[in-house]
Amino acid sequence: MEVRTIKVFTTVDNINLHTQVVDMSMTYGQQFGPTYLDGADVTKIKPHNSHEGKTFYVLPNDDTLRVEAFEYYHTTDPSFLGRYMSALNHTKKWKYPQVNGLTSIKWADNNCYLATALLTLQQIELKFNPPALQDAYYRARAGEAANFCALILAYCNKTVGELGDVRETMSYLFQHANLDSCKRVLNVVCKTCGQQQTTLKGVEAVMYMGTLSYEQFKKGVQIPCTCGKQATKYLVQQESPFVMMSAPPAQYELKHGTFTCASEYTGNYQCGHYKHITSKETLYCIDGALLTKSSEYKGPITDVFYKENSYTTTIK
């Protein structure tokens, strides 16, 4: 009895394709271990004539594949690729409408935090270190965002349907971005203890939790000093293409032309909904596939993004 075979390709990165001759009487799992086709788990399936010449994702289970996976995804987590594939199996079914010149995501599976993050990423200057993220990001900007969303979920250790947080998501993504040249110098002034300067680099240099107003941050924000008295913390120097200011959701007025974009969060910790506000020729609110415009805006804002380049204080 002759062994019926077909020729397929296996890959971990969709760049390096490895030619395989597979036995049609055995499952993919018996031949390769966990195997995925377009995100779908085909591990328990036997090869079919229609699979001839198709590319299958496999887990990096030998040295060659491990090197290829690390170079593309910059992670050695053995569960990463499987999590990416199972997320992709959902995100490829989502709709990605162009809204006001940006790629958004039609609401499904509690994905409003991903839509808000995706919209924000198209408006701030950011370059990702893992080629996987950078490639998928370019495709997302062009309207094909399924891979990018699935990668975000995998890097953030999230599953489809789980509630997510924009600030946490951005923080994970910033860790995989090139923020080497970003720098922030802060000064804390206390009447009792004097003053202390701190220099922050990388992710810490672009994120701040405690106030939404970048102007206020430049002037000074009140913080408790270690001595128990009130101290003032203010920005001395900022070198970065953008800054992200966050605070627990509270009524906040966004003035046209003073910011790049913002995240609105309605609801409580267990259950809520994100919308995205962007400042173009007027203010726009993007909620999944829905767009509304207004000249002014007041609502429960939790993150505001500002364009920056270089700032030095005039406070002496």
Rank of each mutant, 00 (worst) to 15 (best):
residue 54 K to Q: 14
residue 308 E to R: 06
residue 273 H to N: 00
residue 189 V to H: 09
residue 26 M to R: 07
residue 158 K to I: 03
residue 23 D to K: 14
residue 237 Q to T: 12
residue 60 P to G: 07
residue 265 Y to C: 00
residue 183 K to G: 04
residue 160 V to W: 04
residue 279 S to A: 09
residue 2 E to D: 15
residue 204 E to R: 14
residue 296 E to F: 15
residue 22 V to S: 08
residue 70 F to Y: 11
residue 214 Y to I: 12
residue 146 A to K: 07
residue 144 E to A: 11
residue 149 C to V: 13
residue 229 K to W: 09
residue 153 L to P: 03
residue 40 A to I: 13
residue 225 C to Q: 02
residue 57 Y to K: 05
residue 209 M to Q: 15
residue 15 I to D: 05
residue 50 S to L: 12
residue 162 E to R: 04
residue 104 S to K: 03
residue 286 I to E: 00
residue 190 C to E: 01
residue 148 F to S: 02
residue 88 L to Y: 15
residue 188 V to K: 13
residue 265 Y to N: 04
residue 82 G to A: 12
residue 69 A to Y: 08
residue 137 Y to M: 15
residue 200 L to K: 10
residue 241 P to E: 07
residue 138 Y to T: 14
residue 120 T to V: 13
residue 264 E to P: 01
residue 135 D to S: 09
residue 262 A to T: 00
residue 279 S to N: 09
residue 224 P to M: 13
residue 69 A to Q: 12
residue 31 Q to K: 13
residue 89 N to P: 07
residue 121 L to Q: 00
residue 112 C to L: 01
residue 298 K to I: 14
residue 300 P to Y: 14
residue 193 C to V: 02
residue 149 C to Y: 05
residue 125 E to S: 09
residue 55 T to Q: 07
residue 227 C to D: 01
residue 250 A to G: 12
residue 82 G to Q: 15
residue 274 Y to Q: 03
residue 129 N to Y: 07
residue 35 T to W: 06
residue 23 D to I: 15
residue 261 C to H: 00
residue 244 M to G: 01
residue 106 K to W: 01
residue 92 K to T: 10
residue 271 C to G: 13
residue 229 K to R: 12
residue 171 S to R: 14
residue 118 L to T: 05
residue 232 T to K: 10
residue 167 R to T: 04
residue 88 L to D: 03
residue 135 D to F: 08
residue 73 Y to T: 04
residue 69 A to S: 10
residue 51 H to E: 10
residue 234 Y to R: 09
residue 156 C to T: 11
residue 100 N to H: 13
residue 257 G to H: 06
residue 37 L to M: 13
residue 56 F to K: 04
residue 69 A to N: 04
residue 239 E to T: 11
residue 50 S to W: 15
residue 231 A to K: 06
residue 156 C to F: 03
residue 181 S to H: 11
residue 85 M to A: 05
residue 49 N to Y: 11
residue 174 F to K: 00
residue 151 L to N: 01
residue 52 E to V: 14
residue 140 A to G: 03
residue 35 T to R: 06
residue 64 T to E: 13
residue 101 G to S: 07
residue 79 S to C: 08
residue 34 P to S: 13
residue 286 I to L: 07
residue 88 L to A: 05
residue 209 M to D: 07
residue 25 S to L: 11
residue 96 Y to N: 05
residue 68 E to T: 07
residue 212 L to R: 03
residue 112 C to I: 04
residue 54 K to D: 12
residue 200 L to V: 12
residue 286 I to S: 01
residue 280 K to A: 13
residue 72 Y to G: 07
residue 161 G to H: 04
residue 30 Q to K: 15
residue 152 I to M: 11
residue 288 G to S: 01
residue 292 T to Q: 11
residue 295 S to P: 11
residue 8 V to K: 04
residue 174 F to R: 00
residue 186 L to K: 03
residue 60 P to S: 07
